[in-house]
Amino acid sequence: MLWLTWRQHRTQILVTGGLLLALGLLLLVSGLRATAYISEHAPSGCPGPAAACSGVNSTIYDDYYHPVFMVFGLLPLVGSALVGTFWGAPLLAAEFERGTNALAWTQSVSPRRWLLAKLGLLGGMVVVAALVLSAMISAWLPVFHGAVGDKTLEPGTFTITGVVPAAWWLFAFVLGAAAGTLFRRTLAAMAVTVALIALTIPVVFFSRDSYAEPVRTVTTGWTALYDRGGSLVRDAWVTPAGQEVVTLPDGVCPPPPGVDARSERAQLLKDGCLIGEGYRKAVYHHPPERFWRFQWTETGILLTGALALGGLAVTRTLRRRN
């Protein structure tokens, strides 16, 4: 089965390997160039949160971090969709479509072993590929820590680091395989796989905040809290009496005359005035220490889905409804 799996799927395996290599080179070159730039141009103590660093920070962000991150920011959707369509969907759909299931499943190796070997071998490769990518990105991110700040729990970063990429890719792969048993045409299975992944991604992304009860912190220094790399759920004002309010009472800290009430300056002045009046902010957030807890929660959700879809693919294949 090892040889057959390699022979039938070597195109996907080689292309995926090639793409990983290219992405790795991109990250390596980007990391080296950013490091060189920092050592040549950044004043001492920079990059970092100090005000004097803002110039060099934004140059690093604009010229080195952002262009590469644009590529990787698309990976949660594009990577999963590619794995689902080119690894998962053809696995069974192509056999049904060409009638080769009548050849493959009448050999001495039972269809059950054929299917489990293929799902296991290819699924394993998908997981390894995703973990390699995640490790490469995790090695690249610290270069920009000073300039960009910590983005541990930010959706874009969270999805391409840790173990979550592997869970997503495995889910997409099994989803594609299951779609192949339902539609039995490669193109149809591919289309359905992309559509379902495009539906799953926002559902999972928007449910992340509910993986745990958010921490409530009452503070006047909320900017520092936001910059720690956690995930903000919501915030509200707390009156000097300690009551949480959704809307501020009328007449508290009106914008000074001559300042447009909608401007950023007016907002800053108003915040400062409210703090002076004894108001504070209640921030509901997930601190960055929850990174692994959230990683394993999402992995658990996706693996449960993958297991259910895998069960569907296996039973539908072995039931021989033809």
Binding site: Q8, R98, G99, T100, N101, A102, L103, T106, Q107, S108, S110
Partner: peptide, 15 residues
């Protein structure tokens, strides 16, 4: 299955 061989109508082979 070790004792049976089957040749389906479309003579499936991997093209």
């Amino acid at each position: 299955m070790e004792r049976i061989a089957f040749l389906a109508q479309s003579k499936p082979l991997y093209a």
